[in-house]
């Protein structure tokens, strides 16, 4: 179970201005869920998922994993925690100078797992994602869908209980997206991995998620079972995302239900590597 309690994240820049990426977020992901977090660009969803493994440090509030408050984990504890949570990225973020097999081995090397067991584990995962015959290829020799499969295998290497997916299908075509989502559903069903999916596409939520949270203007405006949220959407942004309410040319649902979005464009805030200091 992943719980976020009154979570906020504020970025302050040197010139004194600040930007609230997340405001007072409460969210609970139960074991076995495929939890979709949907919102438009800049709504704060990438920051939200990065708070779950502390790639981003929340400014206020708590992150609980299996009931344990991890918000202030540092050093060894933090590394150990992260190795229990797999992560998949929009741009795959594979290591370009490593073969497919060595990419999958990376998380195991980090944990100093015995070489032979690690190797069999990696091969087993490549089989699961259907890339057994490509273990000696390099990422540059693979298609986008294949690269994302490698990154799924890599994320599962340490047998994580949770899999965080940041826009995992945004760089893929619709057929590849469908097959990747089917793979995720299978992983959820057969391995019992709890999955959090960040997306801007309703179709992704409809395809695999059992629960959904709609995020807009740095807040969660609606959350619950997919069937309930979609059958009686409350927030304007949800109606717009579902195509039930027109989006004006001027502002694609920017103000949403809260009407308090900061004028600061979040795309200006350069994504920086999280500090482990």
């Amino acid at each position: 179970m992943i719980e976020l309690k009154s979570l906020s994240k504020t970025y302050s820049s040197k010139n004194g201005s600040s930007y609230e990426a997340l405001k007072d977020i409460d969210l609970r992901v139960d074991d076995g869920d495929i939890y979709g977090i949907i919102g438009v660009s800049g709504a704060g969803k990438s920051t939200l998922v990065r708070c779950m493994n502390l790639l981003e440090r929340p400014t206020a509030g708590q992150v609980l994993i299996d009931g344990e408050d991890i918000t202030h984990y540092q050093g060894r504890h933090l590394f150990e925690l992260r190795s229990r949570i797999g992560m998949i990225f929009q741009d795959f973020n594979l290591f370009t100078q490593r073969t497919v097999l060595k990419n999958v081995l990376f998380p195991l090397e980090i944990r100093h797992d015995g070489h032979s067991s690690a190797l069999s584990r990696a091969r087993e995962l490549l089989e699961l994602v259907g890339l057994s015959d490509m273990e000696d290829r390099y990422p540059s020799q693979l298609s986008g869908g294949q690269q994302q499969r490698v990154s799924i295998a890599r994320a599962l290497a340490n047998r994580p209980s949770y899999l965080l997916c940041d826009e995992l299908t945004s760089a893929l075509d619709s057929l590849t997206t469908a097959s990747i989502l089917a793979l995720l559903a299978e992983i959820n069903r057969t391995l019992g991995v709890t999955i959090v999916i960040i997306t801007h596409a309703m179709s992704v939520v409809q395809a695999v998620c059992n629960k959904v949270a709609v995020i807009d203007g740095s807040r969660i405006v609606e959350a619950g079972r997919v069937t309930e949220v979609f059958s009686s959407p409350q927030a304007r942004i949800t109606l717009q995302l579902l195509g039930l309410e027109p989006v004006t040319a001027a502002a694609p649902a920017a103000a949403g239900a809260t009407g308090t979005i900061n004028a600061h464009d979040p795309s200006d805030t350069k994504r920086e590597v999280a500090s482990d200091a």
């Binding site: 590394f79 290591f95 990376f106 980090i110 340490n158």
Partner: peptide, 28 residues
Amino acid sequence: RPGCIEAAQAFGASTMQIVFRVFLPESL
């Protein structure tokens, strides 16, 4: 790519592991 470093972090790599297993081999 910062994304590669973020991925290594997400898998629980320490700073030294990132230096030796990401920065050096990726930029070789």
